[in-house]
Amino acid sequence: MSFDLAYLEADVASHADDEPTRRDFLVIAGNAFAAVGAAATLWPFVAQMNPDASTQALASTEIDLAPVQEGQAITAMWRGKPVFIRNRTKEEIAKAEEVKGDQVPDNSARNDLLPEETPADDINRVKEGKANWLVLVGICTHLGCIPKGQSMGDEKGEYGGWFCPCHGSHYDTSGRIRKGPAPRNLEVPPYAFISDTKIKIG
Protein backbone atom coordinates (compact mmCIF):
# COMPACT_ATOMS: atom_id res chain seq x y z
CA MET A 1 0.00 0.00 0.00
CA SER A 2 2.71 2.43 0.97
CA PHE A 3 4.46 1.55 -2.25
CA ASP A 4 1.35 2.43 -4.27
CA LEU A 5 0.98 5.73 -2.51
CA ALA A 6 4.57 6.66 -3.14
CA TYR A 7 4.09 5.88 -6.77
CA LEU A 8 0.96 8.00 -6.97
CA GLU A 9 2.64 10.92 -5.32
CA ALA A 10 5.52 10.70 -7.73
CA ASP A 11 3.04 10.67 -10.58
CA VAL A 12 1.16 13.69 -9.31
CA ALA A 13 4.39 15.54 -8.74
CA SER A 14 5.66 14.85 -12.22
CA HIS A 15 2.38 16.03 -13.76
CA ALA A 16 2.62 19.19 -11.76
CA ASP A 17 5.75 20.27 -13.63
CA ASP A 18 4.41 18.80 -16.96
CA GLU A 19 7.45 16.61 -17.50
CA PRO A 20 6.45 13.48 -19.43
CA THR A 21 7.45 10.49 -17.35
CA ARG A 22 8.69 7.10 -18.37
CA ARG A 23 5.21 5.82 -17.55
CA ASP A 24 3.57 8.27 -19.98
CA PHE A 25 5.90 7.00 -22.69
CA LEU A 26 5.09 3.37 -21.91
CA VAL A 27 1.35 4.00 -21.86
CA ILE A 28 1.35 5.81 -25.20
CA ALA A 29 3.69 3.33 -26.85
CA GLY A 30 1.74 0.38 -25.46
CA ASN A 31 -1.61 1.72 -26.64
CA ALA A 32 -0.19 2.57 -30.06
CA PHE A 33 1.09 -0.97 -30.50
CA ALA A 34 -2.24 -2.39 -29.40
CA ALA A 35 -4.06 -0.15 -31.92
CA VAL A 36 -1.77 -1.23 -34.77
CA GLY A 37 -2.24 -4.84 -33.72
CA ALA A 38 -6.01 -4.47 -33.64
CA ALA A 39 -6.05 -2.88 -37.11
CA ALA A 40 -3.77 -5.61 -38.49
CA THR A 41 -6.07 -8.26 -37.06
CA LEU A 42 -9.18 -6.53 -38.40
CA TRP A 43 -7.88 -6.22 -41.95
CA PRO A 44 -8.23 -9.90 -42.98
CA PHE A 45 -11.83 -9.79 -41.84
CA VAL A 46 -12.48 -6.81 -44.10
CA ALA A 47 -10.39 -8.01 -47.04
CA GLN A 48 -12.00 -11.47 -47.17
CA MET A 49 -15.05 -9.76 -48.67
CA ASN A 50 -13.12 -8.58 -51.77
CA PRO A 51 -13.22 -10.61 -55.02
CA ASP A 52 -11.38 -13.88 -54.31
CA ALA A 53 -8.64 -15.59 -56.34
CA SER A 54 -11.04 -17.84 -58.27
CA THR A 55 -13.14 -14.84 -59.26
CA GLN A 56 -10.09 -12.90 -60.36
CA ALA A 57 -8.85 -15.93 -62.34
CA LEU A 58 -11.87 -15.61 -64.63
CA ALA A 59 -10.77 -12.13 -65.48
CA SER A 60 -10.16 -12.68 -69.21
CA THR A 61 -12.15 -14.33 -71.98
CA GLU A 62 -11.75 -14.89 -75.75
CA ILE A 63 -14.57 -14.39 -78.25
CA ASP A 64 -14.80 -15.35 -81.92
CA LEU A 65 -16.52 -12.61 -83.92
CA ALA A 66 -16.62 -14.37 -87.32
CA PRO A 67 -20.29 -15.44 -87.15
CA VAL A 68 -21.57 -11.97 -86.25
CA GLN A 69 -22.99 -10.32 -89.38
CA GLU A 70 -23.28 -6.59 -89.98
CA GLY A 71 -26.14 -5.18 -87.91
CA GLN A 72 -26.08 -8.13 -85.50
CA ALA A 73 -25.09 -8.12 -81.87
CA ILE A 74 -23.96 -10.75 -79.39
CA THR A 75 -23.69 -10.74 -75.60
CA ALA A 76 -20.65 -12.38 -73.99
CA MET A 77 -19.84 -12.87 -70.33
CA TRP A 78 -16.75 -11.37 -68.76
CA ARG A 79 -16.19 -11.31 -64.99
CA GLY A 80 -19.84 -12.21 -64.51
CA LYS A 81 -20.91 -9.15 -66.45
CA PRO A 82 -22.56 -9.08 -69.85
CA VAL A 83 -20.44 -7.61 -72.66
CA PHE A 84 -22.28 -6.17 -75.66
CA ILE A 85 -20.54 -6.69 -78.98
CA ARG A 86 -22.26 -5.04 -81.92
CA ASN A 87 -21.21 -5.22 -85.56
CA ARG A 88 -22.39 -1.75 -86.46
CA THR A 89 -23.90 -0.80 -89.83
CA LYS A 90 -22.51 2.06 -91.93
CA GLU A 91 -25.35 4.35 -90.85
CA GLU A 92 -24.80 3.55 -87.19
CA ILE A 93 -21.10 4.36 -87.47
CA ALA A 94 -21.86 7.58 -89.36
CA LYS A 95 -24.38 8.63 -86.72
CA ALA A 96 -21.91 7.91 -83.92
CA GLU A 97 -19.02 9.75 -85.60
CA GLU A 98 -21.12 12.77 -86.48
CA VAL A 99 -21.79 13.59 -82.80
CA LYS A 100 -18.55 14.59 -81.08
CA GLY A 101 -17.69 14.04 -77.45
CA ASP A 102 -18.31 17.65 -76.41
CA GLN A 103 -21.91 17.38 -77.62
CA VAL A 104 -22.85 14.57 -75.20
CA PRO A 105 -23.37 14.80 -71.42
CA ASP A 106 -20.30 12.72 -70.50
CA ASN A 107 -17.26 13.79 -72.51
CA SER A 108 -15.01 10.92 -71.46
CA ALA A 109 -14.25 7.97 -73.73
CA ARG A 110 -14.71 5.61 -70.71
CA ASN A 111 -12.26 3.33 -72.48
CA ASP A 112 -10.37 1.31 -69.89
CA LEU A 113 -7.24 1.38 -72.07
CA LEU A 114 -7.26 5.18 -72.49
CA PRO A 115 -6.91 7.94 -69.89
CA GLU A 116 -10.14 9.17 -68.39
CA GLU A 117 -9.85 12.66 -69.94
CA THR A 118 -9.87 11.27 -73.51
CA PRO A 119 -12.84 12.90 -75.26
CA ALA A 120 -15.88 10.74 -75.92
CA ASP A 121 -15.51 10.85 -79.72
CA ASP A 122 -16.58 7.60 -81.34
CA ILE A 123 -13.03 7.00 -82.57
CA ASN A 124 -11.82 6.68 -78.98
CA ARG A 125 -14.37 3.98 -78.19
CA VAL A 126 -13.40 1.51 -80.95
CA LYS A 127 -10.16 0.02 -82.29
CA GLU A 128 -8.46 1.74 -85.21
CA GLY A 129 -9.60 0.24 -88.51
CA LYS A 130 -12.27 -1.77 -86.72
CA ALA A 131 -14.86 0.97 -86.36
CA ASN A 132 -17.70 -1.49 -87.03
CA TRP A 133 -16.96 -3.42 -83.82
CA LEU A 134 -18.32 -1.76 -80.71
CA VAL A 135 -17.49 -3.63 -77.50
CA LEU A 136 -19.14 -2.43 -74.28
CA VAL A 137 -19.82 -3.61 -70.76
CA GLY A 138 -23.58 -4.05 -70.96
CA ILE A 139 -24.39 -2.54 -67.59
CA CYS A 140 -26.25 0.72 -67.26
CA THR A 141 -24.03 3.21 -65.44
CA HIS A 142 -27.01 4.37 -63.41
CA LEU A 143 -27.90 1.45 -61.16
CA GLY A 144 -26.60 -1.60 -62.96
CA CYS A 145 -29.51 -2.88 -65.05
CA ILE A 146 -28.93 -4.52 -68.43
CA PRO A 147 -30.05 -2.10 -71.17
CA LYS A 148 -32.26 -3.34 -74.03
CA GLY A 149 -31.09 -3.18 -77.65
CA GLN A 150 -29.17 -6.40 -78.23
CA SER A 151 -32.01 -8.43 -79.81
CA MET A 152 -33.74 -7.55 -83.07
CA GLY A 153 -37.10 -6.68 -81.54
CA ASP A 154 -35.72 -4.70 -78.60
CA GLU A 155 -36.43 -1.06 -78.01
CA LYS A 156 -33.19 0.76 -78.78
CA GLY A 157 -34.03 4.17 -77.37
CA GLU A 158 -34.24 7.53 -79.09
CA TYR A 159 -30.66 7.37 -80.37
CA GLY A 160 -30.71 3.88 -81.89
CA GLY A 161 -28.24 2.36 -79.42
CA TRP A 162 -29.53 0.94 -76.17
CA PHE A 163 -32.33 1.78 -73.78
CA CYS A 164 -32.36 0.96 -70.08
CA PRO A 165 -35.90 0.11 -69.01
CA CYS A 166 -35.26 0.52 -65.29
CA HIS A 167 -35.01 4.27 -65.09
CA GLY A 168 -35.12 5.34 -68.74
CA SER A 169 -31.54 5.98 -69.87
CA HIS A 170 -30.93 6.29 -73.62
CA TYR A 171 -27.55 5.38 -75.16
CA ASP A 172 -26.50 6.13 -78.74
CA THR A 173 -24.82 3.89 -81.34
CA SER A 174 -21.49 4.57 -79.66
CA GLY A 175 -22.87 3.54 -76.25
CA ARG A 176 -22.75 7.12 -74.97
CA ILE A 177 -25.36 8.38 -72.56
CA ARG A 178 -27.63 10.88 -74.30
CA LYS A 179 -30.73 11.13 -72.13
CA GLY A 180 -31.84 9.88 -68.71
CA PRO A 181 -30.36 9.54 -65.22
CA ALA A 182 -27.21 7.53 -66.04
CA PRO A 183 -24.12 9.64 -65.31
CA ARG A 184 -21.56 7.97 -67.61
CA ASN A 185 -21.15 6.40 -71.02
CA LEU A 186 -21.20 2.61 -71.21
CA GLU A 187 -17.73 1.36 -70.32
CA VAL A 188 -15.42 -0.01 -73.01
CA PRO A 189 -13.64 -2.97 -71.39
CA PRO A 190 -9.93 -3.60 -71.96
CA TYR A 191 -9.74 -5.84 -75.04
CA ALA A 192 -7.51 -6.55 -78.02
CA PHE A 193 -7.85 -8.21 -81.42
CA ILE A 194 -5.72 -11.34 -81.20
CA SER A 195 -6.56 -12.19 -84.84
CA ASP A 196 -8.70 -10.51 -87.48
CA THR A 197 -11.95 -11.97 -86.10
CA LYS A 198 -11.06 -12.83 -82.53
CA ILE A 199 -10.88 -10.61 -79.45
CA LYS A 200 -9.62 -11.17 -75.94
CA ILE A 201 -11.37 -9.21 -73.21
CA GLY A 202 -9.53 -8.52 -69.97
Binding site: M49, G80, K81, H142, L143, G144
Partner: peptide
Protein backbone atom coordinates in the same frame (compact mmCIF):
# COMPACT_ATOMS: atom_id res chain seq x y z
CA UNK B 1 -29.78 -1.75 -58.12
CA UNK B 2 -29.46 -1.11 -54.38
CA UNK B 3 -25.80 -2.12 -54.02
CA UNK B 4 -25.05 0.03 -57.07
CA UNK B 5 -26.26 3.03 -55.06
CA UNK B 6 -22.83 3.00 -53.43
CA UNK B 7 -21.12 3.36 -56.81
CA UNK B 8 -22.42 6.94 -56.79
CA UNK B 9 -19.52 7.66 -54.42
CA UNK B 10 -17.37 7.55 -57.56
CA UNK B 11 -18.71 11.06 -58.06
CA UNK B 12 -16.83 12.21 -54.94
CA UNK B 13 -13.64 10.14 -55.08
CA UNK B 14 -13.21 8.31 -58.42
CA UNK B 15 -12.84 4.57 -57.80
CA UNK B 16 -14.11 4.63 -54.22
CA UNK B 17 -17.67 3.67 -55.13
CA UNK B 18 -16.57 0.86 -57.43
CA UNK B 19 -14.21 -0.48 -54.76
CA UNK B 20 -17.00 -0.51 -52.16
CA UNK B 21 -19.46 -2.19 -54.51
CA UNK B 22 -16.97 -4.92 -55.49
CA UNK B 23 -16.21 -5.41 -51.81
CA UNK B 24 -19.93 -5.85 -51.07
CA UNK B 25 -20.36 -8.24 -54.00
CA UNK B 26 -17.17 -10.25 -53.55
CA UNK B 27 -16.81 -10.13 -57.33
CA UNK B 28 -17.39 -7.92 -60.34
CA UNK B 29 -21.12 -8.46 -60.33
Amino acid sequence: VITNLFSSLDGIIPGLGTAIVEWLWGGYS
